[in-house]
């Protein structure tokens, strides 16, 4: 598989959530090249071109990183801390996905440099709209700061 020119990196351990999120983005018309990784470790492998991603073009950065917080091995928080602390990657816009508005980690994420966050709503309609708006903003309206 060609991992070059990946525009959206999507780290999510829940296959159900991943499927619904990808569906919402696709239905909204975002046909950008998306890579779904199943945990934080894999996400970091991709960013740092390690493991299965060792061969990919290191100069190609994703335009958007959708990051779930609750993931096995390396949590979303750890991934966020790592890349926002790295001058090479801190300009990648990171949108946090969380199960609940009440998550005490949200504030921490902002401190670490997260650009936005989305609560995954139970109601799929709301979820769909949230994903659509998020994609619209970060993929079309926002210009990456380079």
């Amino acid at each position: 598989m060609n991992y070059d020119n990946i525009e959206i990196l999507f780290a999510e351990d829940s296959l159900d959530d991943a499927m619904l999120t990808i569906r919402a983005l696709t239905k909204s018309g975002f046909t950008n090249k998306l890579l779904h990784v199943k945990d934080g470790a894999e996400a970091l492998d991709f960013i740092y071109c390690r493991g299965v991603y060792a061969e990919r073009n290191p100069n190609s950065h994703p335009k958007l990183f959708l990051l779930d917080l609750k993931m096995p091995k390396v949590s979303g928080m750890q991934v966020l801390e790592k890349i926002k602390g790295d001058p090479d990657f801190k300009s990648i816009p990171v949108v946090i996905l969380t199960s609940s508005q009440e998550d005490p980690d949200i504030a921490k994420c902002y401190d670490l440099g997260a650009n936005s966050y989305i609560v995954k709503p139970v109601d799929s309609n709301n979820f769909f709209n949230a994903i659509k708006e998020m994609g619209m903003y970060w993929m079309i309206l926002s210009q990456p700061s380079l």
Partner: peptide, 18 residues
């Protein structure tokens, strides 16, 4: 528990919606 319960419910709702 409630944090973790949310995920399957989201899935149930989402799949039904599909």
């Amino acid at each position: 528990v409630s944090h973790d319960l949310r995920a399957p419910i989201r899935a149930i709702n989402g799949y039904t919606q599909i």
